[in-house]
Every structure is written in C-alpha cells, then in structure tokens.
Design a binder for these strands. Sequence first.
DNA 1: AAAAAAC
Length: 738
Amino acid sequence: MPKKNNVGGKRPAKNYDPSYGKRPAKGGPKAGSRSPGHRGFRPEVEDAPRQKNRWDADDRAARSGARDDRAPRFNRDERPAAGRGDRDGRPARFDRDDRAPRRFDRDERPARFDRDDRAPRFNRDERPAAGRGDRDGRPARFDRDERAPRRFDRDDRAPRFNRDERPAAGRGDRDGRPARFDRDDRAPRFNRDERPARFDRDDRAPRRFDRDERPAAGRGDRDGRPARFDRDERAPRFNRDERPARFDRDDRAPRRFDRDERPAAGRGDRDGRPARFDRDERPARFNRDDRPARFERGDRPERPSHGDRGPRRGGYQPQDDVVLERLEAQAIQAEDVEGKTFGDLGLGGNIVNALAELGAAAPFPIQAATIPVVLEGRDVLGRGRTGSGKTIAFGAPLVERLMENGGGKNRRPGRLPRALILAPTRELALQIDRTVQPIARSVGLFTTQIYGGVPQHRQVGALQRGVDIVVGTPGRIEDLIEQGRLDLSEVSVVVLDEADHMCDLGFLEPVQRIIRNTADDSQKLLFSATLDKGVAALVNEFLENPAVHEVAGEDQASSTIDHRVLVVEHRDKDRILEQLAARNGKTLIFSRTRAYAERLTEQLEDAGVYAVALHGDLNQAKRTRNLQQLTSGRVDVLVATDVAARGIHVDEIDLVIQADAPDEYKTYTHRAGRTGRAGREGTVVTLIPRSRRRRMEELLSRAEISAEFVDAIPGDDIIDEIAGRVPTRAQLEAKTAE
DNA sequence: AAAAAAC
C-alpha cells in the first residue's frame, strides 16, 4: 500500500535503499525540495541517502527482526506505569473507529438542539482558527474521509510514540517535531465536530501541556487555570441553560422507566444462552455430588433475569452466594495472618521487596490464604471482598511459580508467554499490569498488556521480543491468537480476575476459547469478590479439584461502607445529583447507560461541577486519561458506566453515587466497592424513584446490605450530610429548633 | 436492556 505520509509526493512508496540507515548529508534535503512541483526541487534526491523513515511498509515488515537487535529498547515496555498511561493514551487517539458509534448515538438522541446551539457558541469562543474553519464549514465528514489515509499512517507510526513514552528524554524529540503533533492534535478535532463540546475541551492541545507540565497538584490548577480555559468551559454552560437540553433529559426519563418495567422481552435471549445449556449438559462432574439440586434447578436461567422479573426471582437469588460453601471454601481468619510475612508464605526475597515497594508490607488475609495454595500448583478459587488485595493474592505467587519453572533465566527472544491474566475491562487489565509488572521485573520476568482500543503492533512487537506474562482483555487476545501472533500453548498459569463476570453472556465463550489455547494442565486461578456458581461453566471444564478460599467475617456488617438510598422524584434527580456532587473529595457516579453518563457529565459542568466521563463510547485515550484525571486528583467527579464497576482502584474515593440503581446485586457490590477500600471509610448513595423501592430492598437483601431509605428533595440536609458538607449555621439552628 | 470485549 502506498504510504501517504510522504505528503507532497516526496518519494515513491517503494524505496528500498542499501544506504538506508546512513545519515543523510548534513542538513539533508528540505521537505518541500523533494516535490517535483516545488521550486526547490532537487531531482538527485532520489539517489541521496535515504532519510530515516521508520514508518514505511518495509520498515514495518522488518520491524520485529530489527527490534530484536535493539535490545536496550526492550526495557521500554517494562517501564513503570507512569510512562504507560501516556503511551496508552497516545496511540489510541487515532481510534476514530471507536468514535463512530457515538456519532449515531448522538444522532439518535434529541441532541439536535445541542448542536444547533453549539455551533454559534464556538464562534463566540473564538477558538484557534485551526479547528474553526472546519467547524463552520461543517463538511467535517468529508474532511475526515480525506484524512483517513493519513490516519493509517499514523497508526503505523506508533513506534514513534514509543519514544515519547520513554522517560522525559523523549519529550525533547517531540518538541523538535512540531508538525507531527499538530497533526496529532488535529485529528481528534475533526471527530469533535460530531461530539458534544465537552470533549473538545479535553482534547485541546493546551490542556495536554497543562497536564505534562503541571503535575498532580492539578486540583489547584483548576482555579489557577488560564482564563481561556475557564471561558471555554463556561461558555457552554450559559448556553446550555438557555437551550432546550433539559427536554432531552426529560424525554429520556420515561423511556428508562419503560425499560425498567418492561417484562421479559429481551429475556428470551438469555434463556437461550448456550452457556447455560452447556453447564446443564455437563452434569457437573464432581460438583454434582456435592449439590445435586443446585445445577438441575432452573435457577441458573433465572438468575440473569432477576433485573426485570421483580419479586418472582427472589426465591432463587439468595442461593448464588452459597456456592463456595458447597465447594467447602476454607475461610481464613484474620488472626491466622497476624505476624505473617510474604516470605513466610513462600515468596522469594526479590518479590517480597517488590511488594514492599508497592506498599504491601504484610499480607492481607486473602493473600495469606491463597498464596501458599497457588505455590503448591493447585487450581484456586479465591473470594475476597472488594479492595481486599486480590491482585497481589494471585500476582505474586504467579510470578514465583514462573520462577520455579524455568525462571527468569530464560530470556530468549521470542519465548512464549507462560502466564495469562484475563480481565473484563481494559482499565482493569492496565491496573493489574501496574501491580504485576514490578513484581515480575523484580525477578527478571516481563509482562505485556494485550487489549483493544490501541494499535496492536506494539503489543505484537512485545510478544515477538518475548514476554513471560500476558495481561489483557479477551477480545484482543483472541484476535491475536487468530492472527497467529499470540501463542498460548506454553501458558502454565491462567488467572481470571472478576471471574464471575467473565462467565457472563458475551464473555464466557471467548474466555473458554482462550483458555483452551493454554496448556492442558495449566493452573487456573479464579478470583472475584462475588465469586459464585456462575463460574461453574469454567470450573467444570477447566479446573481440577480446586481449592476454594475466602476470608472469614467479610460480611457487609464488617464493612467500612455506609449505604444510603434516596427516594426521589424524577424531576428532582438532576438537582440532587448536582448537590451531591458539588463536594470536596473524590466522587464516582454510576449511570446505567453511556448516553446518560455523558449527559450527566455535561449537566454537572453546567452546574459548575468539574467532571469527566468514563464509558465505552470514549476512545481508549480518553478513557485512560479521564480515569487518570480522577486518580491524580485533577478532577473530583467521574461519571462512569459499569465499565468502572469492577476492580478499578482509585485512592480515596469516599462517595459513590448511583444515579441509576443497578439491576443486579453483584453490580451493587462491585460499584460500592470502589469506595471503602483497604479498610477506609466510604459512603454509597443510590437514587431511586419511589416505584423502585421494593426492587431495591430486594436487591440490597441479596447483597446482604442494610441501608436506610430516605425521601429527599433538593436542598435537604440529608444530601449535604451524605456529601460530607458541614451543615450551615442556619441548618444547625433549624435542627436544634426541632 | 446495558455494559464490556477486536478490527
């Protein structure tokens, strides 16, 4: 394919040249001078030593081999998390494919008002001309099409970004190449045309500089931010207040209720779900004996429907949590752990040191329970409450196991991975790698992340150089397997984090296919805070006499989370959310749909609450960045779909708001578990309409949570109390008067 | 029905 990055026809696509790699004559030909139409055109340039052009097809084809020679660079992949975030963010920016769907979303939404309103706004803002012209002209789509080829080029150029990801030194590179970054910056802008203005702001180049230059103190940044940003942010606000946007919201509300009340329409699907039949057909080899009725009962097909069935499902639900007892889970007592060290559990000195550097000085109960068993080589099911340290519980012994089997001495390039860690979301895969990688590196093992939303060649390159541990999400992993670029045949340890979720519809089958690609006798480790018999499909097929471990006394009564339910009128919901979110401290808000997450983010900003969104309609760059903004404290409010419900750890989230109640009790547990981690305190508040009260009570009882239900209207003290605001003097006086 | 997960 002819490359289009020689814009201006600098050079034919085929340009093999034996002198490749030699430095061009000093100064080299200038870009324009290669164009036949350029007045500075110099024909002899064809014979001149070729300039370094890393990104053409030949180079790419040769890349894997070439890379192997560049040993020092291998380290790039293993660099600590800091660089990672950057890197993951950057290439993904070109994922305009990710954006396409959103366009449709928007078209479907009654968002026309928004757009009509917004167009003039941009003019008013007098933003830089670059984006402008296109916007006004509005032929954005055509522009995009024209640019399409360039984008491919950009994908190809990914390795260049590698350099940027290297420590700060790389930045210099970048400064020297302004043009490319112009282009990079521009790409999103075109997409932005299709999007709510909100995103624009995030994309804008200046902000990136902010980020780079101003570290986490970011919070203060906000206030001190140049007026320009303020203006950008505020402008829409004023407009939005005037515009009919609220109608959108009102329009949508009824629809949601419809859905809630709608009976089993979609259910048929799930009942027909092949996996369930699988499970039923596979007469529970060894489990059967333990619990005859359990697998025969129709309760498995029922379970997923509990979201809509209302009271009817109640009879089946409570059994979900009992499974592990049936498997004779061993409950470790907190006092059993007392005084134990990681070394006592069987981990080597390097790993223990790495754990200490990660802040894990002594093992948590779940870690003390599972680490020795994993080291024995047994299959393990582990259940530990959210935030109880499950990642280390499987990550550390996994590394130790790899050391024992061949160890880190085997650094042969192109060696096959020997461990696989699967997670349900990219963010979680990234986070797991951030924990496991330093542990692995401490003994000379390498990890790599394999997940979607970012160009794959980087990942493929890492695999070709050889890694020991693959951490990723099912889609891309299967993709690379099918492409023949990922060989799992030597994988001897497989970890499924959030294992019960990985058995849900849509995940189970890919996961099964992936596991079948690993060594037959590979050790399987399944972990989740809500591990239940939903994992039977995997247990039956893949696990052999698994050890089941949990931590004694980890019930909700012992939890550090305070649960509240606010019963609100629908028309008050927006105001109450604003009032809750306008607080000090990190707040995570869950919505049921991506569209609502987006809308809520805008609404909060309208109300003066700086917030970012996290959901599957964002490209990976924004997902990574927005989550990072919350982690770094640059923003206090993140509005997310359930993409953030499981596993994601952000320090110091002290309030979780469920703008939409979850449908499943497990979802409640996991969302709530974003706060109150590692023994910290936290509050979870769920907003429900009166009509949902009963369903909510049932859900909470399944989750074994007791929560106070309170009717609330905007301005109520209870809202301030939940938000952690100190009551005003007037409020206190009113109280004492009562 | 939604969300997630590949290009």
